[in-house]
Design a binder for these strands. Structure first.
Lengths: 258, 258
DNA sequence: CGGCAACTTGACGTTGATCAAGCCATGTGG
DNA sequence: CCACATGGCTTGATCAACGTCAAGTTGCCG
């Protein structure tokens, strides 16, 4: 939980385009929105405080009124809700470059929890700073809106996945999505690729039980699509796409304006 | 499919506050955002074309690039996606006053379909008009963003519902949500209250089959919570809330700024 | 009055949950 | 460097929820 303040560059992250630690966030926005150099600079100059958090650390709690917007620089986090019987459902996964709780600027109380799925590095930005930036710079407001809309689109695909696909396809679909989302933030194309997630977390993501996840992983492994075990590797993306009838249009990967 | 253009008042809708046919839309936004009288006037003066559509009419198709934003004045519509095996999943329900496809202004192609659940009355507003209004008036941009964020919150609750609750609780939960959402747009508090939805549609909403929906409806009826049959009535909201462990915080019903 | 769409009900099948036991890697303290 | 504690993975046996198939029935609209 080491802290670090201000514009000091972090060595764990390539500070592409000389925009400092937040550059991964800005790059992410640029994938789906146009931002002028000035807009990018304004984003890079946002005040922030870096935090390193352990696995499982709670970042937002249902009922909270947040004052900072955490931006994920490294690692993974997830949103989740719990049912009356204690059943957990993960309702969103966030990858590096994502703003974790932009919406708290617009709603009184959080309707879900957020936790670190892996050890994470987070930049805490005061919500007010983001809000006023969005007010002054329409392009930034628009980029943040696009980000929000995109998360909605992913959520809808998850509803289809959980509501209508069987366990094997459901799992394969999630792995495909993870592949593309991580591929997007990685510099070079991914090769054999490792997913840092436990079987229990997969169960909470897919509305299944850990035992059944285990059996499905074995099945996919039998088909040569993945390597399972302590670490989870994607070996044959095309096979996973076939099994889950994957289509990437809901990720809107080609949304960059001309 | 009768059409009607311009500011001619429609007799099917109370034109509260003298803001014309779009007043229900404006009222809806006011439930969660503050808008000045000028903002409200600007919204009321949006150009539109009224359309009456039959049950089942497709309003948006996956892959489309929309140019108009349909605003629902009367009736219900739903967003849905279909899986490879033809299974349908309804991923959102829209009630009167909702903007149906605001997001098309920000994404290249639609990632889902929209259809009329009942006969509907819709105001077609050019997307460009809404976009430029949002650019000129930050409060309006903010109100539309709040609306988008709220839909995301509902989607997350649906993920929990479908992923983690059993069929009976799932159904009860949906009925509670419908009650509150319709209650919000109705002037007076609702009494015995009728849901205009078929069992097949309930199945598509909840990731279940029509037969199983039927059995669960009978079960809820046995507990005196609803009256089922040709029409579906909610008799005992408290019982439904108990069964589904319903909490309304995800609806953010008290989000009006002080 | 006839046709259709939605609802209803029963018998049976399958997917995925539950329960339970054991295994295997990692890391920690002695 | 070993012992053992721990968290996650693995596997089998059994069970329940929900799906499937099929045959009515009901109410509505032309």
């Amino acid at each position: 939980m080491a802290e670090q303040t201000g514009p000091a560059p972090m060595d764990r992250h390539e500070t592409a385009m000389g925009l400092g630690p937040l550059s991964i966030f800005i790059r992410k926005l640029l994938n789906r929105s146009r931002l002028s150099t000035l807009d990018q600079q304004a984003l890079a100059n946002l005040p922030y405080k870096i935090q390193n958090l352990d696995v499982g650390t709670q970042i937002l709690r249902e009922g909270d009124r947040a004052l900072v917007c955490p931006i994920l620089l490294d690692g993974f986090t997830y949103r989740y809700k719990v049912a009356a019987d204690g059943g957990r459902q993960i309702v969103a996964l966030k990858v590096p470059g994502d703003a974790l709780d932009f919406q708290s600027a617009y709603l009184h109380t959080a309707d879900h929890d957020i936790r670190a799925l892996t050890p994470v590095v987070i930049a805490m930005v005061p919500l007010r700073a983001i809000e006023s930036l969005a007010e002054d710079r329409p392009a930034i407001a628009r980029a943040l809106l696009v980000d929000t809309i995109l998360e909605g689109s992913i959520g809808r695909e998850w509803l289809l996945n959980i509501g209508r696909r069987n366990a094997e396809a459901r799992l394969a679909h999630l792995l495909c999505e993870l592949y593309y989302r991580i591929d997007e933030i990685a510099g070079a194309p991914l090769d054999t690729y490792e997913v840092p997630i436990t079987q229990e977390q997969l169960a909470d993501l897919l509305g299944l039980t850990p035992v059944h996840i285990n059996r499905m992983l074995k099945r996919l492994e039998g088909k040569g699509a993945i390597r399972s075990g302590r670490r989870l590797h994607i070996l044959d993306l095309a096979e996973l796409e076939r099994i889950s009838d994957f289509s990437d249009i809901y990720l809107h990967r080609n949304n960059v304006p001309a």
